[in-house]
């Protein structure tokens, strides 16, 4: 039996670096509408975004976000559909999608939990919080990611749970967050950032 040598343990391991082109495929040109069916609602949403800008390519991120909402991640088929509507090559969109942290180009679970692990949060226990989340939620159900500064250091350590900012979150609260998501309940309703008053004592007269 051969021993598996980990060639890539040094430095970053990037999906894609080792991928060759599949020479049996055709080149990926601008998808032809005649052979690329696009769901009507997705088309309508992308076209509405395109109408917002003088140059329709500006709708790249909103279009990819729409694809991600619909399919859970930016699937190759979804990217092709968006490319077809926008008259771009799918490569254009995949270049954009892989640039941005929130656009997923690999399959991910339904619930997204970003735990901020940048300086201010990590000074207040974010790394431990992230570990607790990873222990508590399984990958099939939860897309748990350490994230760069989410801009909510006032509630450190915090997390963005399906887009809702909550904090400070203690490790003890992690099971409750997971349970609430599973049961479709509101997550830590008392700790929503939008409900929090400003810290500055001079603001209240």
């Amino acid at each position: 039996m051969s021993i598996e040598v980990r060639r890539y343990e040094h430095g970053s391991r990037v999906p894609g670096w080792d991928e060759a082109a599949d020479l049996s495929k055709d080149p990926a040109q601008v998808p032809d509408p005649a052979t690329t069916p696009v769901p009507e609602d997705l088309r309508a949403e992308i076209e509405a975004h395109m109408a917002n800008y003088p140059d329709h390519r500006s709708a790249a991120i909103p279009a990819l976000a729409a694809v991600q909402r619909r399919y859970g991640w930016c699937t190759p088929e979804g990217i092709e559909q968006a490319a077809c509507v926008m008259r771009l090559t799918p490569a254009y969109l995949v270049a954009v999608a892989t640039f941005y942290d929130m656009l997923e180009t690999r399959p991910v679970a339904r619930h997204t939990i970003y735990v901020c692990t940048n300086i201010s949060c990590s000074l207040r226990g974010a790394d431990e919080l992230l570990a607790a989340f990873k222990d508590a939620g399984d990958e099939q159900e939860f897309n748990i990611r350490g994230f760069e500064c989410l801009g909510a250091c006032d509630i450190a350590p915090m997390a963005s749970v399906n887009g809702v900012y909550v904090g400070p979150v203690t490790r003890d609260e992690v099971p409750e967050v997971i349970a609430a998501l599973r049961q479709g309940r509101e997550v830590l309703p008392d700790k929503h950032l939008v409900k929090r008053p400003v810290a500055d004592p001079n603001a209240q007269t």
């Binding site: 201010s120 000074l123 207040r124 250091c153 006032d154 450190a156 810290a199 500055d200 001079n202 603001a203």
Partner: peptide, 12 residues
């Protein structure tokens, strides 16, 4: 103001 302070938050 954030990090190791007692009252992190925004101050004008």
């Amino acid at each position: 103001v954030s990090g190791n302070v007692q009252r992190p938050g925004n101050y004008e």
